[in-house]
Design a protein around this nucleic acid. Sequence first.
DNA 1: GGCATTTCGTTTCTAGGCTTACGAAACGCC
DNA 2: GGCGTTTCGTAAGCCTAGAAACGAAATGCC
Lengths: 141, 141
Amino acid sequence: MEEPEDYVLEDQVGHLLRRAYQRHLALFQGIMGEDGPTSMQFAALHMLWRRGPLSQNLLGRLLAMDPPTVKGVVARLMARGLVVRERDPSDARMLLVALTPVALAALPGWVEKAKAVSAATLAPLPRDEAARLSAILRRMG
Amino acid sequence: MEEPEDYVLEDQVGHLLRRAYQRHLALFQGIMGEDGPTSMQFAALHMLWRRGPLSQNLLGRLLAMDPPTVKGVVARLMARGLVVRERDPSDARMLLVALTPVALAALPGWVEKAKAVSAATLAPLPRDEAARLSAILRRMG
DNA sequence: GGCATTTCGTTTCTAGGCTTACGAAACGCC
DNA sequence: GGCGTTTCGTAAGCCTAGAAACGAAATGCC
């Protein structure tokens, strides 16, 4: 079959998902600004805010990140002074990750910006379609 | 405001998009198998199939990839013998990327698998929602 | 014809993301 | 109590992705 035309890349879900996520990341970066956290760094910080200190492993599961990926994100957060790591006294395998006061002070502002990012990502859609998109994506998970 | 609860990560579009794309990539890799192309490698190959030899830059624009990213993808395709690069005789700035016979022989099978990937990605959705998802994502681009 | 601008490719840096493999610690079961 | 299994973290390697900065080549405009 010499007909490439019945598979058009631009129409494939994968490509559309990639483009949409790509655009979302660009919006995130633009709204958070130069010295703000990246998308995944913010996700980790916010999860620690909601749940308190967590092991790297659990943090990763909650955020859908592999252990090696979590390690990288936490290392960069540590380098920026937003997070500290301590051995769990009750289980020496675990490294508990906890927010620093610096992170606690910055988080409320960042959460507001994160809300703006979500709004900007959905901005091209009428309200009912935004809701439908969320429902569909959740079902695909 | 000490209330993290009004921003729930799992409900944000960005997170849902990331999860969906993550799942898609896993399906792609699983269906293509060990020695198949990656998602972006396949996208590049298929675009070259449809359009003939292209400069790296144009290829990147068609696929929504930055120049450094294209360079890496093309380098890996070249290392696998699927692609060759030649200077454009009419414009010495351009490196024309072209498929090799190996790639031409493999492409029909890979396209079939790529169709299976799209189907698998959409499998959890009823047919009308799959169509709606595509329409919504396209509008967000 | 000559100079500013644009385009193309590259390099380097930072970041995320996955795979495979491995060591250390804890747990479960006997 | 001891041994196998599971869990946690780490390491190294590959791939995608973007920013910034640069050289080289072509184009456009004067």
